[in-house]
Simulated scan of single mutants.
Amino acid sequence: MRTFLVVALGLTCALQALAADMPPKPVRLGLCAACHGETGMAQIPGAPNLAGQKLDYLRKALKDYRDGSRDVPLMRAAIGPVSDADLDQLARWYSAQTPPPQAAGQP
Rank of each mutant, 00 (worst) to 15 (best):
M1I: 03
F4S: 08
L5W: 10
L9Y: 07
T12V: 10
A14N: 14
A14S: 11
A14P: 10
Q16F: 15
Q16V: 12
A17T: 12
L18D: 15
A19H: 01
A19S: 06
D21I: 01
M22E: 09
M22Q: 14
P24C: 09
P24T: 09
P24E: 13
K25H: 07
K25I: 03
R28I: 03
G30W: 03
G30T: 07
G30Y: 05
C35N: 05
C35H: 00
H36N: 03
G37D: 06
G37T: 10
G40Y: 03
M41F: 03
A42K: 00
A42I: 08
P45L: 14
P48F: 06
N49L: 13
L50E: 01
A51Y: 01
Q53A: 07
K54V: 11
K54R: 11
L55S: 11
D56A: 15
Y57S: 09
R59W: 14
K60V: 14
K60G: 01
K60R: 14
D64S: 10
G68M: 14
S69M: 06
R70Q: 06
R70H: 01
R70F: 02
D71W: 08
D71A: 13
P73T: 05
L74T: 12
L74E: 15
R76P: 00
A77N: 06
A77M: 05
I79H: 01
I79C: 03
G80I: 08
P81W: 02
S83I: 13
D84P: 03
A85C: 03
D86Y: 00
Q89F: 10
Q89H: 11
Q89K: 14
L90N: 00
R92V: 04
W93C: 04
W93Q: 00
W93Y: 04
Y94G: 08
S95Y: 01
S95V: 04
S95T: 05
Q97G: 15
P99S: 12
A103S: 07
